[in-house]
């Protein structure tokens, strides 16, 4: 997260505040210390970039969207609720920005299934693949293929389920944080996760139960 130390430019104005909590930094920014903004940006721009890139199909827009997210952070610092977690707030802004983008462009991140799962393994083999921790060259090739297909399938998930999967698996947030970002109860987030994984398992042919409600 947030490297760029060697990139010069604004780095010289960044406050050395690696141990200062985000919430304090945003408070300082709200009070007028703009140097704190660069520190906040360095802490979060990489993960927000990744989050947005996984959500939108036109990758050339990602940089603009990240920029817009942090401009909103900058301008809205004084509106930050100090009882909330800053990371959840910035992700919430990012999610709203992504939704605005979808609305503007009428699209979300979707890929055609040009490379369907097909029959390159069979159910039992796929199951073995998932559970086999040893990586040999051949297995690695199939692993990569499987992984690519899995990404395509994640992109096909309903928007809200996909957002939960991305925030949980790729961005390592807790379910509580995701609930705050998505503005919904924890139980809803857990349901979305459950339905999403159930769908993926079914699409992959590894869901023996074949039931959305199944474990």
């Amino acid at each position: 997260m947030g490297s760029g130390a060697a990139e010069g430019g604004h780095m010289s104005t960044t406050v050395e505040t690696t141990r200062i909590p985000d919430e304090v930094l945003i408070g300082e920014l709200a009070a007028g210390d703009v140097r704190c903004f660069d520190t906040i940006f360095d802490r979060y721009h990489q993960q927000i970039y990744n989050f947005i890139k996984k959500q939108v199909s036109d990758h050339e827009s990602v940089e603009d969207l990240v920029q817009e997210v942090f401009l909103r952070v900058y301008k809205s610092a004084k509106n930050f609720d100090v009882t909330k977690k800053f990371s959840s707030w910035v992700y919430k802004i990012a999610l709203n920005e992504v939704k605005r983008h979808w609305k503007r462009t009428g699209s979300r991140q979707t890929f055609s299934l040009n490379a369907p799962l097909g029959d390159e393994g069979g159910e039992s083999e796929r199951q073995d693949l998932l559970e086999d921790q040893r990586i040999t060259p051949d297995v690695q090739t199939e692993n990569e293929l499987f992984s690519q297909n899995l990404k395509l399938l994640i992109d096909r998930l309903p928007e809200k389920q996909k957002t939960v999967v991305i925030l949980k698996i790729y961005n390592d947030l807790t379910f509580e944080e995701i609930a705050e970002i998505c503005d919904c109860p924890l139980s809803t987030v857990l349901s979305r996760m459950r339905y999403a994984v159930s769908k993926l398992r079914r699409w992959l042919g590894i869901d023996e139960g074949g039931d959305d409600n199944g474990l």
């Binding site: 990139e7 940006f41 721009h45 990744n50 940089e63 942090f70 899995l150 994640i154 698996i169 994984v197």
Partner: peptide, 25 residues
């Protein structure tokens, strides 16, 4: 197992070179 597998295939897309400074500016 599936969750571990998805996680293992998750790669970080690095912010393009120069983008940090561009965006900050």
């Amino acid at each position: 197992s599936l969750l571990r597998f998805i996680k293992s295939g998750a790669k970080t897309d690095p912010v393009p070179e120069g983008a940090r400074d561009r965006m900050l500016k």
